[in-house]
């Protein structure tokens, strides 16, 4: 610093300020020391904690990716035909993987009985084909 750029009295002001900083009392210095140590301490664990959390975050991201991959692989492939498109759109709009027909079948007790006697209906169908043709 070029001290000549300031008026002469600033030299005395500077020395007075230096004295005041040099001769701070013991309680003030003790408090400054504690503040300094605390500032250094809060910096060190923070940096190490970052390194500790990095593998955990990486593992979490991998698990999430794996879960999304498995979910995508287990989804049934949807074949969009022109006739089925409106129904699929309606299903998608309803936010569910089931269509309305499935829900009706599950809700109806009669239809469940039909499913239990599926062998009988298959035999009946075969008899009809033999008879017709």
């Amino acid at each position: 610093m070029n001290t000549n750029e300031f008026p002469g009295w600033t030299e005395r002001a500077r020395s007075l300020l230096d004295e005041s900083a040099r001769d701070l009392d013991a309680p003030a210095l003790a408090r400054l020391n504690r503040a300094r140590q605390a500032a250094l301490a809060q910096r060190a664990p923070r940096r190490r904690a970052g390194w500790l959390f990095m593998p955990a975050g990486l593992a979490g991201a991998c698990a999430l990716l794996l879960a999304v991959g498995v979910w995508q692989a287990r989804r049934p492939p949807s074949v969009a035909t022109p006739a089925a498109a409106p129904a699929q759109a309606a299903t998608a709009k309803a936010g569910s993987g089931l269509n309305a027909g499935d829900l009706d079948m599950i809700a109806s007790g009669d239809n469940l009985d039909m499913v239990q006697d599926l062998d009988f209906y298959a035999w009946l169908d075969a008899q009809d084909e033999d008879h017709n043709g």
Binding site: R22, L24, L29, L32, A39
Partner: peptide, 27 residues
């Protein structure tokens, strides 16, 4: 730290407030 404390003390006219400010600045 000593000069910082004196600067803060001149600004606040209060030793405790000045020490708090210097500690915040260090953090």
């Amino acid at each position: 730290e000593r000069r910082a404390l004196r600067m803060a003390e001149l600004a606040t006219c209060n030793r405790d407030e000045a020490l708090d400010l210097v500690q915040d600045a260090m953090f």
